[in-house]
């Protein structure tokens, strides 16, 4: 009897949902062959945040260079590829459209299937590039645009069991950083400052009782009010202590709720995903908590936490295997919902 030879799956993935122009090639959903990211941070820093029109203009400048670089590093030709994947949403619509139209044009010329990937599914699947995912699985997705707890019973199955009711965690970080006169993006600065402080200013925690939902706008206002009151009294704030107080509140709420959900749903694995999972304070707290719980915890390396195309390629591989296909009429879906790709 002849041996069944499995053909390797090579996905070219493209991601342009916000301010990174990225392309990657992923082998069999688990191995990064190349991973290229052109960041716009230097440009967007001028505006203290991402300006959509500027983001779109930069994407057009970078898109073919980034894809070419991904192929070059991988030392591959288009006909070595199995499929092309691209972030379909959520994200900035004008930004998404650059990646999507480049992906469609490329797929058309080389007669490759095209797969539209949900950005958050991508963040979750960044972990498949670290170690195999085990189900049931709980993902804590924290970024500038998202704060969600997602339960996965198998590949391609997503149930959002909790989400933010107002600001995303990363958004709160950026706003507090602005109060402390830190440059954009603020997260890493707050994280660094927080680690320099011994004492913390006490800020409230929003527990929202039984729910797995989150809220960070109250905390953000508390920080702003604190600064305001100190200013009025003519007193100097100690930025390190404010940062620590803020970060302690965010991390404690995120950790406690994730642990509670992991217990309730009896999950085998917990994963962190999204830009804020690069935060040292949060990583350490989750690691310690799940060590105590005896539940496997994975968090992607830093460069896979922020936006990248490798994660899109990882998710797309499982979608490809499940038979998911897009077509040349694919459009950007800025408010795309995280829905199952398995039936």
């Amino acid at each position: 009897m002849g041996e069944l030879i499995m053909k390797d799956i090579y996905i070219l993935a493209i991601e342009t949902s916000c301010d990174e122009t990225a392309a990657a090639i992923i082998r069999n959903g688990s191995e990064i062959v190349s991973n290229v990211v052109a960041s716009q941070i230097e440009s967007q820093k001028r505006f203290g945040g991402v300006v959509p029109e500027i983001a779109s203009r930069h994407h057009v400048e970078q898109i073919t260079l980034v894809i070419e670089e991904a192929l070059k590093i991988a030392n591959m030709q288009p006909n070595d590829l199995t499929a092309v994947a691209v972030t379909e949403g959520p994200g900035l619509v004008g930004a998404l459209l650059i990646g999507i139209n480049a992906a469609k044009a490329f797929a058309f010329v080389h007669n490759l299937p095209i797969i539209g990937v949900h950005h958050i599914a991508g963040h979750i699947y960044a972990n498949a590039l670290v170690q195999p995912m085990e189900f049931p699985l709980l993902a804590l997705v924290v970024s500038g645009g998202h704060t969600e707890l997602v339960l996965m019973k198998e590949h391609g199955s997503f149930e959002v069991i909790g989400e933010t009711r107002d600001d995303a965690a990363g958004e709160a970080y950026d706003k507090v950083a602005r109060v402390l006169n830190m440059p954009y993006p603020g997260g890493p600065h707050i994280d660094r400052l927080a680690h320099e402080a011994k004492e913390a200013v006490e800020f409230p925690r929003a527990w929202l009782e039984d729910s797995y939902d989150f809220s960070f706008s109250g905390l953000k206002s508390a920080v702003i009010n604190y600064k305001h009151n100190m200013d009025q009294r003519g007193e100097e704030i100690i930025p390190e202590q404010v940062a620590k107080g803020f970060q302690d509140s965010v991390v404690e709420v995120l950790t406690t709720k994730t642990v509670r959900a992991a217990r309730e749903y009896n999950v085998k694995q917990v994963i962190a995903a999204g830009g804020v999972s690069a935060n040292k304070g949060l990583r350490t707290s989750l690691e310690q908590a799940f060590n105590r719980e005896g539940i496997s915890f994975i968090v992607p390396p830093l460069k896979l936490c922020t936006d990248n195309a490798a994660m899109i390629g990882a998710a797309a591989t499982y979608m490809y295997e499940a038979g998911v296909r897009g077509n040349l009429a694919m459009n950007g879906v800025p408010g795309k919902e995280l829905i199952n790709w398995i039936k």
Binding site: V60, I63, L97, N101, F108
Partner: peptide, 19 residues
């Protein structure tokens, strides 16, 4: 239209680059 231009140009340059 900024978006219209970018769609045409992105498709044109991607096709041209890969061809």
């Amino acid at each position: 239209s900024y978006t219209g231009l970018r769609i045409g140009v992105t498709i044109a340059k991607t096709l041209a680059w890969t061809l």
